[in-house]
């Protein structure tokens, strides 16, 4: 009787290593072993190709389920209820809870779905920026999270740089460069306006598999603290990269790891019109 899963083939002992190699889980020594073995073993090269195919077909956008709007609203409503109940506990909730409670009667009058964006934004505006990092970083994180939560990722949704760039024209007093990085695995999702540090800024939105990268752009003025050198930092679980180029300040923020966000930044810089 055969097993439900097809046999691993003659190189069964290599299978775990091949998987580990695909997943970036091997140390340098094992990674080199795998490279050497792949060079001489067509069967394993084929196996690795099949694993890569699985990754490719699964990485299509519509394979991942996205939370329906009703669920999003339900979760936020439950959290609001939870916070309303919380002040009964002996804790230092005074400021926030008071403000939150003051908001609640008006929140309750609305049906949840239309008010979702407001609610989500309100929750975040009340509570952010969190401790640690500069206030600017807190604002950037808030802007990023807001774009994900309130389903306001883009004002202009397009993967075409020639659609996104002109859209900014007339809306802001500078022209952010919009580059297409689909070939590098960072497809453009669109752009929108956001409000950071007391000014309207451009936000470019890229995707990486299921992750979203927001790139906030504004003219480098007095706040161009980081000229040409970039810095990576983590803030509340997000990775931020900051750099300046041709008179503009850029902040890229995502829940991607630093390595991948760095890769994005390098691709972005490389693709800029010289």
């Amino acid at each position: 009787m055969s097993t439900p899963v097809p046999e691993a083939g003659p190189c069964a002992e290599w299978e775990a290593l091949l998987n580990g190699s695909l997943d970036g889980e091997l140390d340098a020594a094992h990674a080199m072993d795998v490279e050497r073995h792949l060079a001489v073993c067509p069967a394993c090269a084929g196996a690795l190709e099949r694993m890569t195919l699985v990754r490719r077909v699964m990485s299509q956008d519509d394979v991942r389920w996205r939370a329906p709007a009703t669920l999003r609203a339900g979760v936020i409503a439950a959290l609001v209820r939870e916070r309303r109940a919380a002040p009964a506990r002996p804790s230092g909730m005074a400021g926030l809870a008071g403000r939150l409670r003051a908001m609640l009667p008006s929140l309750r009058r609305w049906s949840f779905i239309p008010s979702l964006a407001v609610l989500a934004a309100a929750l975040l505006l009340v509570v952010l920026p969190p401790k640690g990092g500069s206030p600017l970083e807190g604002e950037l994180v808030a802007g990023h999270v807001r774009s994900l939560l309130a389903e306001h990722l883009t004002d202009v949704a397009s993967s075409n740089q020639h659609t996104v760039k002109p859209w900014f024209g007339g809306k802001i007093d500078f022209s952010p460069p919009v580059v297409d990085l689909a070939a590098r695995g960072f497809p453009l999702a669109g752009g929108r306006l956001d409000y950071i540090g007391g000014r309207v800024v451009a936000a470019l939105v890229y995707r990486r598999n299921g992750h979203v990268i927001n790139v906030f752009v504004w003219p480098a003025g007095s706040d161009a603290r980081v000229a040409s050198a970039y810095k990576a930092r983590a803030h509340e679980g997000y990775t931020l990269l900051n750099w300046s180029e041709a008179g503009l300040t850029y902040w890229a923020i995502s829940d991607l790891n630093t390595v991948e966000l760095k890769e994005f930044q390098e691709d972005f810089l490389e693709a800029l019109p010289k």
């Binding site: 389920w65 669920l71 969190p130």
Partner: peptide, 25 residues
Amino acid sequence: DRGLDAAGAARFDALILPHLDAAYN
């Protein structure tokens, strides 16, 4: 007994809420 104070709630919103899609998936 500390409950989730304002900073805790903020951290929750910033750290956990963005993974709603992943949770549903």
